[in-house]
C-alpha cells in the first residue's frame, strides 16, 4: 500500500483507475437516490470532473470518500424532478412464463404495490436497501459509500425491508 501514498489523482492512469473502481457504484448510488429523473452518469461525471479540478488537493486515499460525498450531497434543482421514481425494468430477471393468468395478475398487482412502496421509502433507506438487495453490497461497503456507520446501514435496510413487508402484506 506504500505505493498509494505517491499516487497522485492528477495522473491520468490513477484517475482512470479510480473511475474503473468507483464509477459503477457511484452510478448505482445516483440511480437509487434520484431515480430516473436524471441521467446518473451525468452526476458521476460531475463528481469526477470536480475530482480532476481538485486533484492536487485530494489525496488518493481520500478520493473515494470525496467522490461519494459529492454524489451524496448532490441534490436536484428542479422541483419537477423532486419525485423520485425507480423504473420497473422491462426485462424480468427470471425467464420462465409458464404461469397461470391469475398468477400473472397477482404478480402485476404485487409489483405495482411494490413499486409505490419502494418509491415512497425515504431516500436514505431506499439507497441502502437497493444497494444491499440488488447490487449485493455488504453493510460495511454501503456504510463506506454513505459515510455513515455500519449499524446505521443495518437499521436502514431493516426498516426499509419491514416497511415494504407491511405495505404488501395486505395483498
Amino acid at each position: 500500500m506504500k505505493k498509494e501514498l505517491f499516487d497522485s489523482v492528477c495522473e491520468e492512469k490513477v484517475y482512470e483507475r479510480l473511475y474503473q473502481q468507483h464509477a459503477r457504484d457511484l452510478h448505482d448510488f445516483c440511480y437509487y437516490k434520484f431515480g430516473d429523473s436524471i441521467n446518473p452518469e451525468d452526476k458521476v461525471h460531475e463528481a469526477f470532473m470536480k475530482l480532476w479540478e481538485k486533484c492536487k488537493e485530494v489525496p488518493f486515499a481520500k478520493a473515494k470518500s470525496f467522490l461519494f460525498t459529492l454524489v451524496n450531497n448532490a441534490s436536484l434543482n428542479s422541483i419537477k424532478h423532486q419525485k423520485v421514481v425507480l423504473k420497473h425494468q422491462a426485462v424480468k430477471p427470471k425467464g420462465y412464463t409458464n404461469e397461470t393468468p391469475e398468477f400473472v395478475m397477482e404478480e402485476q398487482q404485487f409489483m405495482q404495490r411494490f413499486e409505490r412502496a419502494l418509491n415512497n421509502l425515504p431516500e436514505g433507506q431506499r439507497i441502502a436497501f437497493m444497494l444491499n438487495r440488488v447490487e449485493g453490497k455488504k453493510h460495511q461497503e454501503i456504510a463506506d459509500m454513505l459515510g455513515i456507520s455500519r449499524k446505521a446501514v443495518e437499521k436502514r435496510i431493516y426498516t426499509a425491508l419491514d416497511k415494504l413487508r407491511q405495505e404488501i402484506k395486505e395483498l
Partner: peptide, 12 residues
C-alpha cells in the same frame, strides 16, 4: 421484486 428495479446497465 426489488431486482426489477435494478439500476440501468453501466459500462465504466
Amino acid at each position: 421484486a426489488a431486482q426489477y428495479f435494478r439500476a440501468p446497465e453501466f459500462d465504466a
